[in-house]
Design a protein around this nucleic acid. Sequence first.
DNA 1: GTCCAAGTGGACGATTGCGTCCACTTAGGA
DNA 2: TCCTAAGTGGACGCAATCGTCCACTTGGAC
Lengths: 215, 215
Amino acid sequence: MAKSSRITARDGVRADARRNRERVLVAARAVFAEHGIDAPMATVARRAGVGVATLYRHFPTRDALVRGAFAQQMEACARALTEALAAPDPWQGFQQLVETVCALQREERGFPAAFVAAFPESTSEHAQSRRRAEQDFTTLVRRAQASGELRADFRPSDLAVVLLAHCGLVTALPDDGAASRRLVAYLLQSFRTDPANKPLPPPTALSLRSLPMAN
Amino acid sequence: MAKSSRITARDGVRADARRNRERVLVAARAVFAEHGIDAPMATVARRAGVGVATLYRHFPTRDALVRGAFAQQMEACARALTEALAAPDPWQGFQQLVETVCALQREERGFPAAFVAAFPESTSEHAQSRRRAEQDFTTLVRRAQASGELRADFRPSDLAVVLLAHCGLVTALPDDGAASRRLVAYLLQSFRTDPANKPLPPPTALSLRSLPMAN
DNA sequence: GTCCAAGTGGACGATTGCGTCCACTTAGGA
DNA sequence: TCCTAAGTGGACGCAATCGTCCACTTGGAC
């Protein structure tokens, strides 16, 4: 079993370092859930049982830590979008997507704030994958509208409205998720085509990309 | 013109003190709008052109300052509720109320956070007037439902859901209000009775009183 | 077992915000 | 004009958080 490469284990990182990194991520999720995304770095370090220096080596900025802590959730969101596009019924896909993303936000406390605080560096891979997600979502919207089930005046930027509003809700409430479910149901209902619908006020000028940047 | 009473002017408060109090309130609104409700007290004092001590004499706690700064808006909300109850058509009243409150929140940046942060001391007149508002709103809801225009499964606690979500939205966006208007329109639409509506998930256990307390 | 680079922890100086204290200023009644 | 209590401002002590530096420890190659 020649499992060790030239320098050290697997990825050239010492085993204890990798272990500590993981402990920090677990601690970060716990602390962020409990005290919000602005909790002191030292608290995270203490919870993880490591020194501050160790924390800062693995995650030089709070932002990096936040991103690391919720990387799984971000990926789950991306996956949900892919699945939504693959769904046979585009409205089903749309509905599924909104529900899944909101469910993710309500399950991992602190994630919504992280999600909204978003990606500061606009040159990175993140900006790229975000633009990609934006395009995919726009496609999904168009299809659902073409199928006649999503109201014609829905704009992709309305997703930002939904997510920000939902984020505010779940962040404010240490709740079992009932409020979140209720809001989502109300909103999805009014997104669905209904001949009796009155015209909405003009859509926002927002693109998904213009979610507030951390800065 | 015997305008001065025994001690000093009008209310027994020196003219310069009253003037400073007003300057502080103006400054507080400006600073809260710009930097959020957690802006340093010293910033408010500097903006008002007074010393910190002066600020602390007039408003011993940040909470008192916040409440003072947005007292007008709170009163406007209360007035809106009264007017809604007096409206000939209860659904119109309901709609008006939601729109007016949300308009107030979007116009004075920082007010939503103040509104939600709410009233800490539960023994005060505030708790009482809040309970009163709660009862009045419940009455309004019942009437609108009786008229058949508001969906039967709407719960008064849903107002908390709306306000928290809306607060999150306008707080996150330094925006012209388009997003806020859009959200409100979507929500009002789904509150309106529609035979095609599917049942909602169970209402939250929240009473309006359980909006997060500033602990 | 030996060795050393990678990894670690916590002390530390800097910064920021809080709220109080006290010596000075001033409004306004007499 | 004088007098004094009400009002004022800013310096100060305290606490929290940040991010760095450096002396010590340890994983793992040989």
